[in-house]
Design a protein around this nucleic acid. Structure first.
Lengths: 202, 202
DNA sequence: TGTGATAGACTGACTGGTCAGTTTGGTCGG
DNA sequence: CCGACCAAACTGACCAGTCAGTCTATCACA
């Protein structure tokens, strides 16, 4: 039995694209399935053919986008024979480039965290998303402290704080809290993090 | 004709209390008016007697809570004959104490920012809430830079970043992202901010 | 002191719209 | 002619907001 040409990967991408636009524009709750239907140019039946429902579509979208960022980050920070300072700088540069693009999604992400609190399934999924990021940052900071490049009391807590800072920035941009000044703000954040970690640049 | 004892202040407080619990628990969108009715022990009609609708109730709640924090902060940082460093330390101490309590609301706040993007009225209101906070922090940092206590490239951007950091922390705690370690994390944040601003403590 | 009037505070059943998800009936390639 | 794939009408639960009416305190006046 030879099935006809498999278009599912293409279709999923098409739906993801539309969902990203819609969720980014109106947030999770205010986006209707019909919005996504219209944006994608497909039909309701098609969406429900590929995804169980709104929640699953949303979470899959996250897995897709966040997963990609995580992989990129991992690839430039793990298994490399460079100093912790350089890894940190590379991370900051990555955030600077990627976060703005992903910002709308981050705005929505926060909304989803609220959804998290009474849905065990979603909660564990989200923790799963976030964990690798935390681990990478913790790793970098631990490494830096070990080599004497960084100075801090608690590596784990500091990693959390640094990640939180960038979460906050993405969120703020995503929600349009700050109209512009992206570069200036990212410079300030970099300054705060580097100096805050006691990094001495040559 | 003398009106009977005015219970409206008390009732509003009662409704605020219930709304805070409900919004904190389920977020804005998933909280129904009936939830708040049940939690408050009042009736639907009573809610609509005191508030135009869900949105207004929500925004009023914010005005109440945020406004109080803003006043407290202003009172300990403005018009005082103390160093910028001490003002910053006092601010950080205030955040440490108040933020945890307000954390559930902050979780919801992010959700509300999403709501912001297609509602001019809500957007300007939220900007209004946030503006005074930014101004206080900017003021402190400017002062510190002027007296040579702090070092930074751009005072405005740095104020934004510092505020964002605490927003992020409140959010993270509010959404239950970190189970515990509140003190350790707040220590790390303090360390990052102080060192990041180049504060030299005696 | 009793009585009727009035305003303020409050109740809860009801409505109308919305939207996630379902159903049904295709179409088309192999 | 099978089954993957899709269109679009449909269903029903849910929920913000409404409204007709109730209750209670206070007052004016006898």
């Amino acid at each position: 039995m030879t099935p006809r040409a498999d278009v599912s990967a293409e279709r999923r991408q098409q739906i993801f694209q539309a969902a990203l636009v819609c969720f980014g524009r109106k947030g999770y709750h205010l986006t209707t399935m019909d919005d996504i239907v219209q944006e994608s140019g497909l039909s309701k039946g098609a969406l429900y053919w590929y995804f169980r429902g709104k929640k699953e579509l949303f979470l899959s979208l996250f897995q897709e986008v966040i997963g990609q960022l995580g992989q990129t980050w991992e690839s430039i920070t793990v298994n490399q024979d460079v100093s912790a300072t350089d890894k940190l700088l590379a991370s900051i540069a990555l955030f600077r480039n990627e976060l703005r693009e992903m910002a709308p999604l981050f705005g929505v992400m926060m909304e989803a965290w609220a959804l998290t609190r009474h849905d065990e399934e979603v909660e564990s999924l989200f923790r799963g998303f976030y964990q690798p990021f935390l681990e990478i940052m913790t790793q970098i900071i631990q490494e830096g402290v070990a080599t004497g490049e960084f100075h801090t009391g608690s590596t784990t807590a500091m990693a959390l704080v640094v990640m939180t800072l960038y979460d906050g920035i993405a969120l703020a941009i995503g929600t349009g809290m700050w109209a512009s000044d992206w570069d200036e703000i990212m410079d300030a954040a970099e300054e705060l993090v580097l100096r805050g970690l006691g990094v001495t640049r040559d």
